[in-house]
Design a binder for these strands. Sequence first.
DNA 1: TAGAATTTGTTCGTATGTATG
DNA 2: CCATACATACGAACAAATTCT
Lengths: 243, 243
Amino acid sequence: MEWEKGEAIWKQIGRFLLQDITGGTYKPGEKLPTENEIAKRFQVNRHTVRSAIAALTEDNVLRVEQGRGTFVQETVLDYPLGNRTRFSQIVSGRHRLPDKHLVESKIEFANKQVLKRLMLSGKTKVIRLESVSEADGIALAYSVSYLPAVRFKGIEKIFTKTKSLTEALKQYGLEDYTRKNTRITAHMPDRRTSEFLRQSKNKPVLITESVDIDTNGLAIQFGITHFASERVQLFVENKNINF
Amino acid sequence: MEWEKGEAIWKQIGRFLLQDITGGTYKPGEKLPTENEIAKRFQVNRHTVRSAIAALTEDNVLRVEQGRGTFVQETVLDYPLGNRTRFSQIVSGRHRLPDKHLVESKIEFANKQVLKRLMLSGKTKVIRLESVSEADGIALAYSVSYLPAVRFKGIEKIFTKTKSLTEALKQYGLEDYTRKNTRITAHMPDRRTSEFLRQSKNKPVLITESVDIDTNGLAIQFGITHFASERVQLFVENKNINF
DNA sequence: TAGAATTTGTTCGTATGTATG
DNA sequence: CCATACATACGAACAAATTCT
């Protein structure tokens, strides 16, 4: 291997690695060879390789996990939290192919939390929809939604066909709805969640709880969404309104 | 132990436990006796105790951790993400006593990420402030802030005295500033962070990255805040603006 | 780092009381 | 009076997570 003079070798190695990544030799999420192997390939000391990796880590191209290896950083999806956030629109807007499939649906009595969020009371039946959202076949989120059962009877069938809650709601005459507010927490995933997201048990999930309301202010959906923290970051754009 | 007829035993046990909690026998964050011990105390089967605990967990009074025990749920602080979010105001507004103390401050050259967020370029010096935010003496967040060094020279001294960034900035003639946007992610804490937050290594942290700008649109602060996910939940209130 | 002890989670089975038609 | 369903309560055994040594 010949090195250009006048530029640090680690910088040149960094460029080589970057080419391998952009060229597709190492794909997002994939493990790079060990530092020793890379050092052998370029005929340099391991420390030189580490400098290159450190620079690429700083630039968010690589991610190093002690004891495991070096990985190509997955491109994280910026998920805006607005009052008109629609999953499919966001993903398509990023030139990625959205998909959302139903995992399970059933009708049950609402518990206290669901009742409160849907602004209901008494013994009320709700439809519980579980779904997994993907972009380019990679799982991004696992959601549980609750809708009033009387108003949206049979919505799970339409949801399965259209793969979109927005579309399904249209069939019930709901042309428009907005998000009231969103609560954000972080937790370790339970087994079910980490399996759906195909994400390590040791990586946390970002959880949003939100309520959608129709134009009359009636609650139509209470949703709990578990985002794979590895692949999604939430984003709040603050409108510059001075009160 | 005598049980009232006409009401399930587990419901009565639930009330006893709730009294112990509201009465202060078990304080927020504290561990309850084991299920077996509680069962022995009330002379019932462990399952019966579990029913009572399950109900209190549903009501967000208790929190159960497999292998560790049952704990009194800490009251979580709703932390709104708005363009005028001020830590001290939020905490005082919840009738809790805010405190924010400086851990470390130094001047260094900005790295790429900081340069980009502060909308700067070239080799620029920034002030790096590390601080821990508390409410009633309980750590809620650990923050790292970067400010342009030229403009805010010596701000760490004023910050230490006033314990508030807002106040410190006023001394530099900045009467007002707003938050541009906020990025939210979740990660496992490094050792330093989990020590500052006095939170288990196995509990995630909620991380916000945000930029504050002055009334002229100039970036004045880039901050990375690590919230104890156990004790804080973020909150986005969606303004109901129909475009 | 390997294993024991502790603690909660899950799944059997059994039995009883109560409400419903 | 009977059949059925459901909630309650107990007991035992084992699985899974965590902590400590």
